[in-house]
Amino acid sequence: YYKILGVDKNASEDEIKKAYRKRALMHHPDRHSGASAEVQKEEEKKFKEVGEAFTILSDPKKKTRYD
């Protein structure tokens, strides 16, 4: 999950949140509406992965379990 968000394992809550926003905007489906179906599908997959990574890393209990 750290790799997906592009943050270090010791990243602060704020750094995780900023990285999530950056990656979410980058891969958001609306940004790729004019792209081919294949690209849209890949970006949607990445967008979901970013969301999942943020869900785990932003919750202290889940993050501890993950680490």
Rank of each mutant, 00 (worst) to 15 (best):
Y1H: 03
Y1L: 13
Y1R: 01
Y2I: 14
Y2P: 03
Y2M: 05
Y2C: 06
K3M: 08
K3L: 04
K3F: 02
K3S: 13
K3W: 03
I4G: 08
I4A: 09
I4Y: 01
I4C: 09
I4K: 03
L5A: 03
L5F: 05
L5P: 07
G6A: 03
G6T: 03
G6K: 00
V7M: 03
V7W: 00
V7C: 06
V7T: 07
V7H: 04
D8V: 00
D8A: 11
D8M: 02
D8F: 01
D8I: 00
K9L: 04
K9E: 13
K9Y: 09
K9R: 13
N10I: 02
N10V: 04
N10L: 05
A11P: 03
A11Y: 00
A11K: 01
A11G: 02
A11I: 00
S12F: 01
S12L: 01
S12E: 06
E13N: 13
E13D: 12
D14Y: 07
D14P: 03
D14F: 07
E15H: 01
E15W: 00
E15L: 00
E15R: 00
E15S: 04
E15Y: 00
I16Y: 01
I16T: 05
I16A: 02
I16C: 01
I16L: 06
K17E: 13
K17Y: 11
K17T: 09
K17I: 07
K17R: 14
K18G: 09
K18W: 04
K18M: 10
K18P: 01
K18R: 13
K18Q: 12
K18S: 13
A19F: 00
A19S: 06
A19R: 00
A19L: 01
A19V: 02
A19H: 04
Y20Q: 12
Y20R: 05
Y20T: 07
R21N: 15
R21C: 11
R21T: 14
K22L: 12
K22A: 13
K22S: 14
K22Y: 09
K22I: 13
R23L: 15
R23G: 10
R23P: 04
R23I: 12
R23F: 10
A24S: 14
A24Q: 10
A24N: 04
A24R: 13
A24P: 02
A24L: 12
A24F: 10
A24E: 02
A24I: 11
L25C: 10
L25R: 14
L25E: 14
L25P: 04
M26G: 10
M26A: 12
M26Y: 05
M26T: 08
H27Q: 08
H27V: 01
H27P: 04
H28L: 02
H28V: 04
H28M: 07
H28W: 03
H28Y: 00
P29W: 02
P29N: 05
D30P: 04
D30M: 05
D30C: 07
R31V: 08
R31G: 06
R31K: 10
R31C: 06
R31D: 06
R31A: 12
H32I: 04
H32P: 03
H32L: 06
H32Y: 11
H32W: 14
H32F: 12
H32D: 01
S33P: 04
S33G: 10
S33E: 12
G34C: 10
G34M: 10
G34A: 13
G34D: 10
G34H: 14
G34S: 11
G34T: 15
A35M: 10
A35V: 10
A35D: 05
A35R: 08
S36K: 13
S36A: 08
S36V: 07
S36C: 09
S36E: 09
S36L: 06
A37Q: 13
A37E: 12
A37N: 11
A37F: 05
A37P: 12
A37I: 11
A37D: 13
E38H: 04
E38C: 09
E38L: 08
E38I: 06
E38P: 01
V39S: 08
V39C: 05
V39W: 02
V39M: 07
V39H: 06
V39A: 09
Q40D: 03
Q40V: 15
Q40H: 03
Q40T: 09
K41L: 07
K41R: 14
K41E: 07
K41Y: 00
K41P: 01
E42G: 09
E42L: 09
E42V: 12
E42S: 12
E42C: 08
E43K: 04
E43C: 02
E43P: 02
E43Y: 03
E44I: 08
E44G: 09
E44K: 12
E44M: 15
K45I: 11
K45M: 12
K45E: 09
K45L: 11
K45C: 03
K46Q: 07
K46P: 01
K46C: 03
K46I: 01
K46L: 10
K46G: 02
K46N: 04
K46Y: 02
F47W: 07
F47S: 07
F47A: 09
F47Q: 05
F47K: 14
F47M: 13
K48H: 05
K48A: 11
K48N: 08
K48E: 04
E49C: 02
E49R: 03
E49P: 04
E49M: 11
E49Q: 13
E49H: 00
E49K: 06
V50Q: 05
V50P: 05
V50Y: 03
V50L: 14
V50A: 06
G51S: 15
G51L: 13
G51V: 15
G51T: 15
G51P: 03
G51Q: 15
E52G: 07
E52T: 09
E52C: 02
E52W: 00
E52R: 10
A53H: 03
A53V: 01
A53I: 01
A53G: 07
A53S: 05
A53L: 01
F54D: 10
F54R: 07
F54W: 13
T55P: 00
T55I: 00
T55M: 14
T55L: 04
I56L: 08
I56V: 15
I56W: 13
I56S: 09
I56K: 09
L57T: 03
L57E: 08
L57V: 06
L57D: 06
S58N: 12
S58M: 10
S58V: 06
S58L: 04
S58H: 04
S58A: 08
S58C: 07
D59N: 08
D59F: 01
P60S: 11
P60W: 06
K61Y: 11
K61D: 15
K61P: 09
K61S: 12
K61M: 10
K62V: 08
K62Q: 15
K62W: 04
K62S: 11
K63E: 11
K63R: 15
K63C: 03
K63G: 08
T64M: 13
T64Q: 15
T64E: 15
T64I: 13
T64C: 11
T64Y: 14
R65L: 14
R65D: 15
R65G: 14
R65N: 14
Y66T: 13
Y66W: 01
Y66A: 14
Y66F: 09
Y66G: 11
Y66N: 07
Y66C: 10
Y66P: 15
D67A: 06
D67P: 05
D67S: 06
D67V: 05
D67H: 00
